[in-house]
Design a protein around this nucleic acid. Structure first.
Length: 192
DNA sequence: ACGCGGATGGCCT
DNA sequence: GGCCATCCGCGTA
């Protein structure tokens, strides 16, 4: 996979924790009508599947969670707290129900457009440093639920520079009520 | 630099 | 009816 090319389905056809770790440094890109937005993924969380109490797939296949059971590399986009969208990359085989939540990215392209969509952001760093902010800045909504991130759609994740283990912190997941201790959050710690 | 609570709506029970 | 894989602003230091 060349630098910048979309990560293939095989990349996602692994355990969610491994994919979450390896998505650090990859480049999320949205080629929208308003312009191209891209950013380097710097924070992720793994949701392992139906046996993971914190995972949406634990409630089974519903209208909301439908695409979490899609093929590896599917975008699973959900609506939360009445106002925020969050985007995941589905992992493992179709029908399994595991995914990686994209929690934060560093803006690369399209910063002016991001700022227009995130008027409350006080700094570039504040544009997409949270799962709801990522979707707001990138213009990701229900319209992207079920798209393939592996190429052929306007929403992709491309290969980026590898992040070494020294620069990765592993912590419990944020904002959940179940399985709160599971170390499935991955963060790039090194500045820049 | 923290901690807390309100906003806001779709969906499961 | 109540629960959310969140964000923001306001309050105390």
């Amino acid at each position: 996979m060349r630098l910048g090319g979309p990560l293939p389905p095989a990349f996602y056809d692994r355990d969610a924790a491994a994919v979450a770790r390896d998505l650090l440094g990859a480049v999320l890109r949205h080629d929208s009508d308003e312009g191209v937005i891209s950013g380097r993924i710097v924070e992720t969380e793994a949701y392992l599947g139906p046996h993971d109490p914190a995972s949406h797939s634990a409630v089974g296949r519903t209208a909301r969670t439908w695409h979490m059971f899609g093929p590896p590399g599917t975008a699973y986009v959900y609506f939360i707290y009445g106002m925020h969208w969050c985007v995941n990359a589905v992992t493992r085989e179709e029908g399994y129900g595991s995914a990686v939540l994209i929690r934060a990215v560093q803006p690369l392209e399209g910063v002016p457009l991001m700022r227009r969509r995130r008027l409350r952001a006080r700094s570039d760093r504040d544009l997409a440093n949270g799962p709801g902010k990522v979707c707001a800045a990138f213009g990701i909504t229900r319209a992207h639920d079920g798209l393939l991130l592996t190429g052929g759609s306007r929403l992709t994740i491309g290969a980026g520079e590898t992040v070494c283990d020294d620069a990765v912190a592993v912590t419990p997941r944020i904002g959940i009520r179940k399985a709160v201790e599971w170390p499935l959050r991955f963060v790039v710690t090194a500045a820049r």
